[in-house]
Simulated assay, not measured.
Amino acid sequence: MWMTDLDLRPVTEADLPMLRRFAVEPGLIGNDWFGFRDPRAQDRRFALDGYLGTDNGRLIVTTEEQAAGFVTWSEGRYGGAASYWEIGIVLLPERRGRGLGWRAQALLCDYLFRHTPAQRIQAGTQPENVAEQRSLVKAGFQLEGTVRAAEFRAGQWRDGLLYSRLRTDPPVAV
């Protein structure tokens, strides 16, 4: 079933229990589980800046006015004065497979291109995460290549795939 009403909004205090779950429930985040994290870190970050920092942030993905997960962005720099955004997404298991992910990532790109001067947005995923690869392509990203030994997960170093979208790429209809 496709959800038609999809939006991104700032994190509220009511979202903190969901964010804490992602820090302590191994199966909730899938392949991106990197061990238990401090669940109260979510509260401290929210108190600091509501997850709307100058070099990183988080927005809640909503559908039918219910939180479905969140998108993130963080600043990176290859050199010089120009920076880029690295984005990510995590959806609650019951909200996956409905076309929300690619649309949320496309909306996040539109938001970042509209409100920041960044020319480049990039996203990484695992080679075995075929659903996310398709999602990124639908959101207007292009595969740039393999990043060897990019992450340590489940006891070993694993490759990653790097995708990017540029401000000058064609817009994506959400």
Rank of each mutant, 00 (worst) to 15 (best):
T4P: 01
L6Q: 03
D7L: 01
A14I: 10
D15R: 07
P17H: 09
L19T: 06
R20T: 11
R21W: 01
A23V: 07
E25M: 03
E25K: 04
G27L: 11
I29A: 03
N31T: 13
N31L: 14
D32L: 14
G35S: 05
G35H: 05
F36S: 12
D38C: 05
D38Y: 03
P39L: 14
R40F: 07
A41L: 08
R45V: 15
D49N: 04
D49A: 02
Y51C: 01
V61S: 02
T62C: 11
T63V: 15
E65S: 14
Q66T: 15
A67F: 12
G69S: 08
T72D: 04
T72K: 02
E75P: 10
G80V: 12
A82K: 14
Y84Q: 05
W85S: 05
I87F: 05
L91D: 00
L91I: 08
P93N: 05
E94W: 01
E94K: 02
R95H: 11
R96E: 04
R103F: 05
R103I: 12
A104H: 01
Q105T: 13
Q105D: 05
L108R: 10
Y111N: 02
F113C: 00
R114F: 05
T116D: 00
P117W: 06
P117V: 09
Q119V: 11
R120E: 03
I121S: 00
I121R: 01
A123N: 01
Q126P: 00
P127N: 09
N129F: 02
V130W: 07
A131W: 03
Q133R: 14
L136F: 09
L136N: 11
V137R: 08
K138P: 02
G140W: 06
F141N: 04
F141Q: 07
Q142V: 14
L143N: 09
E144T: 10
E144W: 12
E144N: 09
T146V: 15
V147M: 14
V147R: 12
A149S: 13
A149M: 15
A150Y: 13
R153V: 15
A154K: 15
A154F: 09
Q156E: 14
Q156Y: 13
W157G: 08
G160D: 05
G160I: 11
L161Q: 08
L162M: 15
Y163D: 02
R165S: 02
R165D: 02
L166H: 09
T168Y: 06
T168Q: 03
P171R: 07
V172K: 11
V172Y: 09
V174S: 01
